[in-house]
Each structure stands twice: as C-alpha cells, then as structure tokens.
Design a binder for these strands. Structure first.
Length: 508
RNA sequence: GGCCCAUUAGCUCAAUUUGGCAGAGCAGCUGACUCUUAAUCAGCGUGUUGAGGGUUCGAGUCCCCCAUGGGUCACCA
C-alpha cells in the first residue's frame, strides 16, 4: 500500500501506539449495550425517582471530535445510533487522557465505558471512565458537516459524492452516508416481505442451478464459463423459468426462487449484468389470477416496508393500490401509434406501416421484435401509474400459452410502473407438442449466430411430456422494485458493488 | 460501440473565460482552552492538476491520444 502524507501520519500513530504498549487492533471487545439500548434505558431511568445510574460499555466509530483543554466531546456511531462521549481528565486520568488525545481520530472504532448522563445542554452522553482503541483507521472518512458561510449560505462539506468512488468503494459510501445504509435496510425488508407474502400463500422457496448446460427462459445473451474436469462449457442462467416449471411436473404446485440472473448485455440506469430476480409458478392458475397476485404482492410489500401504497418516484406520485390499469397491447398500440398489429400479420407489412408513420423500424427484424420495439419506445415510458399490458404476439413469447380461439396471441402480461418494465408473466404453455414446435419456430426466426436464439431444451420437453399442470408464471426485477420504493433513478444505487469497468492498472 | 460532458489536496470545490507563482472550507498537524455539538482562538497546504505526448519563454488552462466515470443514442424481456 502507498500512503499519502496524511495517511502516513496515521500509520506512524499505529507504531507509536505499539511503542506505548497499546494495541491498535485488539482481539477482545466488550460491549454491554447497543447505543440505542443505552439511550433508551437511560431515558427510562430518568422518569424514576431513585434510579440507579446506568453503567454502560459502548462501541462504535468515532464520527466527531471536539477537544477543549482538559475535556473532550466526541460522537460515536454504531448500527443503532449515535451518542456523545464526554471525556474529562479528572475521570480517566492524566495518562489515559493524553493518549486519547494523541491517538484517537475521526473514523476509528473505539470502546468506552462509563455512566449515562445529560450534559448541561441536555444531550444524552456517556461520562467516560475508560476507553480503548478497537480499530485504528488509516484512510480518512469524509466527515459530513454543515457550515454556514459568510454569505449565510449553508455549505455541506466533505460528503462523499463522486459516483465512481461511491460505487467502487461502497464500504466508504455506506460508512459516510446514512441514507445509503437505510436504503439497503429497506431493500432487505422488501426481499423479506416478498418471501413472507409467498410463504403465507403456501409457496415453497427453492434453489435451482445457476450454472446451466443449456440456457433459456428469456431472450438474452448469456455469460459462458467452463468446467475444467468435465471439459464442458456452462452458461450462467439468464432466467430460472425452465427449472422451476420442471418442479411443477414433479408435484411442487407452488414454487418460487429469489436469486441472481446474469445477462451479457449493455449496462444502463436500469440494467446491471447481474441482477436479482423473483420468479414464482402457481399450478391451476392463469395469467388473470397472476395479475391479481401481482397487484397484491407489490402493494403489500410497499405497505410493509414503507407503510403506504403511495410512493414518490422522480416527479411522480404513484398509487400502488389495486386494481391496476389494464391495457391490451394491440389496443394500446392503436391508441398511441395508430397501428393495428392484427392488420399486419407479416414483418414486412408491419415494417411498411411503421415506416409510413415515421417510426423507426430496424430492417429485417421479425414481426414480434418490431412490436416489442414499438411497445418499448412508445408505450413503456408513458406507463407511470401501475399498468398491466396484456396479450402479446406469439412469436416473442415462446413459453406462453395461446389465447383460446386466437392462436397468434398468447396470454402474457407485463407490469409497468414509473415508465419502467417491472415484471412479466403468462399462462404457461404446458402442451409439449406445441412447445416443441415453438422451439423449432424460434430456430427458424433467428439467425444461427444470434445468441438470443433459445436452444432447444430436450430435457424440458421430456419433463413437460410427463404432464405439467396448467399454471401461471411470474418474474419481477427485484432491483427495479427497490428503485421504485426508494426513489432511486439508477439501478446502481440499489445494488451493493455494482459492476464497473476494471481500472487500468498496467502502469503500476 | 457513436456523440457530449467531467477528472485539481484525504473529502467537497475554486482557479480554465483572456496561458503568467495551484487556492479555499472540512479533516489533518502544532499550541491554548474543564459542558462542546459548525466549538473557539493562534499557526502549518500536505498536490505527478487522471496517464502519456505536443505547441509555447511559460500549460491545470490550448492541441493530440489513452484511461475511468456520468449523460445520451445504439443495444437490451
């Protein structure tokens, strides 16, 4: 490690401490209360006439330091809160006081024992009788501080804001920005609420392979890896779908999985190469029932984690209360772009209609992709309030069941909130012969080199041939849900250690 | 991948317009101060201005190139 002069001073202190017989990174720690518990116990005792003093040993990171002659004020912070320490030379002794002043810096983890009391200004504090270093910091954490300038303007100093540092050094971001810590508590609450919701409805949580010999269940390019001993290429999964539906064949009627998907595609404010997905499959249900479950699930999660169905996202106030708006895809496109996809059964015809309307249409795209592109460009951004878009073209939905009496359309819906696609669901195709022909259809539609082409999964077809119960399936991007519930516009804000390009270290 | 913007002290930012000694606040260091919380007071600037090259008497500033980040377009269930 190379240190700046500032950092070298801290390293020198570490050596000086050891010379003075003080271990800067001791092995044993004592702690009698969390900071929150000590504060609560003290406040309770204040109400009693003859309460015994609250003796406490607290631990935390030093966040502020105000030394004035023979007393020192400092705030320490643990996961539960902050409390002021009051160090007085009379209480801890001259030698100990001197060492504290010499060796303690903002950012250090320390342990302090003493009695809870209130200062003259009324702040709950710990009158320290003894203290010790738990872990010396070398790099300085920015200490957020608000200072009023000469012109009366309040300037906030030294809060970490460079996005590159915040993402690359998430630990520093968390240490310095309390709202980031709070965000990940909300995230954990969201995941917990999702689990609770499904568990209460008799869903079984399962774990299926991440390393897969054949990828599928979505139109996306995979990451490829290799098993050395087996001499076999493997793919990181792009969805859980095909494995979870095998479980329905096996008699697990309601299953779900929360885990990581990997897609080898562009990154953006709403795409990270790895992201957290929830998928569930529910036997003896169709997509209409799944819509109802979806509304209930998302609004329940919001209620449990935020205490409300009304969320603020960007400039929008969004009401998650069921039922959500439902728009048929075909009708939505008629209303917004003025094209009836039913009148254009071939890619060529649709392409011509789009060009005539002045819409951009990538030449040579299959019909389904053109429809999908129109939907993404013109419908998706306008769906701020929760909206289900339903009934999709068959050729972009190879795993969904056709609508009765309308073989070109499948029972599929996507849910949108805040102008973002949030979830995707359908009545699952359970006819193995139809499924096989869908796979073959796809093989013809996509070029051989197109990695989005779903490879034929023979084992999946075999499973389905044993008889898969009619079911509804559902997938939701958990990161995007967290973005909505925490009002963050970038997926990187809600992921710990989001992927960034590797720094060029060639010169070191 | 294309285009635009950014990168200056540990952190947040000036100085770039018109090339002329690289500066503040916070934190840090030295000293004073026994109830502060923006502590206060007196001092100290700690830097390969993202990397490399060029123009120039002189470059943080202008030019080229590279890297990283952000935005946007392309791409993308």
């Amino acid at each position: 490690m190379e240190f700046s002069e500032l950092e070298q001073q801290r390293v020198d202190k570490i050596h000086q401490m050891r010379e003075a017989g003080i271990e800067p990174y001791p092995t044993r720690v004592e702690r009698t209360h969390s900071i929150m518990a000590a504060r609560a116990q003290f406040e309770e005792s204040e109400g009693e006439a003859e309460a015994a003093p609250i003796q406490a040993t607290l631990t935390g990171r030093m966040r502020s330091l105000r030394a004035m002659g023979k007393i020192v004020f400092s705030h320490i912070e643990d996961a539960t809160g902050t409390v002021q320490l009051f160090l007085r030379i009379n209480d801890i002794g001259e030698e100990s006081f001197k060492q504290s002043r010499e060796f303690f810096n903002i950012g250090d983890h320390i342990q302090a024992s003493g009695v809870m009391f209130r200062t003259r200004t009324g702040e709950i504090s710990l009158r320290v009788q003894s203290c010790k270093m738990l872990a010396k910091s070398i790099l300085t954490l920015p200490a957020a501080k608000n200072v009023e300038g000469e012109d009366g303007e309040v300037v906030q100093h030294a809060t970490l804001s460079d996005p590159e540092v915040r993402y690359r050094q998430g630990y520093a971001d968390l240490a310095v920005n309390p709202d980031v810590r709070e965000l990940f508590r909300v995230r954990a609450g969201v995941v917990q609420s999702l689990r609770d919701f499904l568990n209460e409805r008799d869903f079984l949580e399962v774990e299926t392979p991440i390393l897969q010999p054949i990828y599928g269940g979505a139109a996306a390019r995979p990451f490829v890896t290799h098993h050395n001993q087996l001499h076999q290429d493997l793919f990181l999964r792009i969805s859980f779908e095909l494995y979870l539906k095998r479980l329905l064949v096996g008699g697990l009627d309601r299953v779900y999985e929360i885990g990581r998907d990997f897609r080898n595609e562009g990154v953006s404010f709403k795409h990270n190469p790895e992201f957290t997905q929830l998928e569930f499959y529910m036997a003896y249900a169709d997509y209409l029932q799944i819509m109802e479950v979806t509304e209930q699930m998302v609004s329940t999660v919001a209620q449990k984690t935020l205490g409300t169905h009304i969320i603020q996202f960007d400039e929008h106030e969004i009401d998650l209360t069921p039922p959500w708006k439902r728009i048929e895809l075909r009708q939505g496109l008629i209303d917004v772009v003025g094209i009836d996809i039913d009148e254009h059964q071939t890619a060529e015809s649709l392409q011509a209609a789009m060009t005539a309307k002045g819409l951009k249409a990538k030449p040579g795209s299959p019909r389904g992709k053109l429809i999908d592109a129109m939907m993404g460009d013109y419908l998706e951004p306008s769906f701020i309030q929760p909206t289900f878009l339903y009934d999709y073209p068959r050729d972009i939905s190879p795993l969904a069941k056709s609508k009765p009496g309308d073989p070109q359309t499948v029972e599929r819906f996507e849910g949108f909130i805040g102008g973002m696609e949030l979830c995707n669901a359908f009545t699952e195709l359970n006819d193995p012969l139809d499924q096989e022909s869908r796979f073959l259809e796809l093989g013809r539609t996509y070029e051989d080199g197109d990695e989005e082409k779903n490879p034929m999964d023979e084992d999946y077809l075999r499973a389905m041939s044993y008889g898969m119960p009619p079911c509804g399936g559902f997938g939701i991007g958990v990161d995007r849900l967290v973005m909505l519930l925490t009002n963050r516009r970038s997926i990187r804000e809600v992921i710990l250690f989001p992927h960034l390009r590797e720094r060029d270290r060639g010169e070191e």
